[in-house]
């Protein structure tokens, strides 16, 4: 390993927070949503202050993921998508726009978000198949599941590059090497980061356990959906560039989900076009 000293989880969180501030717009939207007198118009005004976010939200509302309706105003988009969902999507959009400090040589941000968005769309569609309530949170958790990976690249690129190089010679997956070398993996780091930014449990818990859903006490089933979406995305060519191999299937968690391979096929064929559309919308200027 490199001579650079390995940072502890707490050190890394504080280092990341210096580079990537917790998304301001998320906190403002959150405050507004929790205020009893807030109207859709108030939320729309906050979003409209950010032209980039406004465009992406409108395009998303018009995409097949939300039924391809004619949505021409932010107010209608909020009514269609939902206030909490709009808040979470704005979180994803601001996350996608950040992490610009990552060295491009060994970590392609575009591939990273391509993988994350594919995982988000697949997770949402699996959740719909499984009749899970509020399937949109799976879209958000899917997009954020590897946020720790992007943050590791932004803060300790040299160390991560060495870790990635190890996976070339060993028959193992990236998160196992991370745990061995750092004492934590990108899933734990990502979850801690989100927790630090006051992102709710039903998102950071899924991020935390996306490689080991059977270990989650409270959100095992939900984390399994992200886990499975991650594996499918990687297998179908929407891989992230840091992780070259498909994650190990947590078969204990997988059995509990009771998703037949026929259902899985349906999810995949349903998601394919949506994935390409959403990637185009959310990563337009990367």
């Amino acid at each position: 390993m490199s001579t650079e000293t390995l940072p502890t989880l707490a050190e890394l969180i504080s280092r990341t927070s210096e580079i990537n501030s917790p998304p301001l717009i998320y906190n403002r939207l959150n405050e507004a949503i929790n205020h009893p007198r807030t109207s859709v118009g108030d939320i729309a005004r906050i979003i409209s202050e950010d032209p980039g976010l406004t465009t992406r939200v409108l395009k998303l509302a018009n995409s097949p993921l939300y039924g391809s309706r004619q949505v021409d105003s932010i107010n209608r988009a909020i009514t269609l998508i939902g206030t909490k969902e709009i808040r979470d999507i704005s979180l994803c959009v601001s996350m996608i726009c950040s992490f610009s400090t990552i060295p491009k040589e060994f970590f392609c941000l575009h591939n990273h978000w391509r993988h994350s968005i594919a995982c988000g769309v697949l997770a949402k569609n699996i959740a719909i198949f499984q009749r899970e309530p509020s399937a949109d949170r799976f879209f958000v958790a899917g997009i954020l599941h590897d946020i720790g990976q992007a943050a590791l690249c932004a803060t300790i690129p040299q160390i991560l590059e060495n870790i990635i190089a190890i996976t070339d010679h060993e028959n193992t997956v990236l998160n196992e090497i991370e745990t061995r070398e750092l004492g934590y993996d990108h899933a734990i780091f990502g979850a801690e980061l989100l927790k630090n930014w006051n992102i709710p449990l039903n998102i950071h818990e899924l991020v935390r356990f996306h490689h080991s859903p059977s270990q989650s006490d409270s959100h095992g089933r939900d984390a399994t959906i992200i886990h499975l979406a991650d594996i499918i995305a990687q297998a179908f060519g929407y891989g992230s560039n840091a992780e070259k191999r498909v994650a190990r299937l947590d078969s204990e968690a997988f059995e509990k989900l009771e998703l037949s391979s026929d259902q899985c096929e349906m999810v995949i064929s349903q998601s394919e076009q949506q994935i390409d559309d959403i990637i185009a919308i959310l990563t337009a200027e990367l």
Binding site: A235, F236, E265
Partner: peptide, 20 residues
């Protein structure tokens, strides 16, 4: 190649490879 060899023994993974 992108799967760990032992993973390919799981029927679900086999099906997934087939589809991919």
């Amino acid at each position: 190649m992108i799967f760990l060899p032992e993973e390919l023994e799981h029927p679900f993974i086999q099906r997934l490879v087939e589809l991919a």
